[in-house]
Amino acid sequence: MEIRIGMINTAREIGLETSQTMAEVETLVANSLSGTSPVLKLSDDKGKTYLVASANIAFVELGSDQNRRIGFVG
């Protein structure tokens, strides 16, 4: 699943792809934004871990759970 995170006062976004389900990511984001956790912690498919301060999150965009198609579709 593709995730984009927009940060306050920053023109760039954080983009990553994860194998976590949409429900898992939604729970992590909701806990982070509600103040339960001061840091949003996500892991991508390549093994990298992203720690984002909850106070700096402007938006979180969640893509679909479907895998991307490769090649020409016609």
Rank of each mutant, 00 (worst) to 15 (best):
I3P: 14
L62F: 08
Q20V: 00
V29R: 02
F59N: 09
A58E: 14
T27Q: 15
K46I: 00
D44T: 05
A53W: 01
M7V: 15
Q66P: 00
T18M: 05
F59M: 10
S34I: 04
L51D: 12
R4A: 10
V29E: 05
S37A: 14
F59W: 13
L42H: 06
L42F: 06
R68I: 05
I14Y: 08
R69K: 15
K41F: 03
M7Q: 11
F72S: 08
L42E: 02
E13R: 12
D45M: 15
G47W: 09
V25C: 00
T21N: 07
T18H: 02
T21Q: 09
T36Y: 12
I8Y: 07
S43Q: 11
V52M: 06
A55P: 01
E13C: 12
K46H: 09
G6E: 14
P38V: 00
R12N: 14
D45H: 09
M7F: 11
G63M: 08
M1K: 01
E24G: 09
E17A: 15
D65Q: 15
R4E: 07
I57S: 07
S43W: 01
L40E: 02
I8R: 14
A55M: 10
A53F: 03
M7C: 13
L42K: 05
T18N: 02
Q20P: 00
Q20A: 14
I8F: 09
Q20D: 11
A55T: 08
N67K: 15
I8V: 14
V60E: 03
A23H: 03
I5S: 04
E26V: 10
E24N: 12
E26G: 07
M7L: 15
G63W: 04
E26Y: 05
V60R: 01
Y50T: 03
A11K: 13
G35R: 01
R4H: 10
A30G: 03
D65C: 07
L62H: 03
I5D: 06
A23G: 02
V73G: 07
V29G: 07
N9V: 01
E17F: 06
S43E: 12
D65I: 08
E24V: 10
T49L: 10
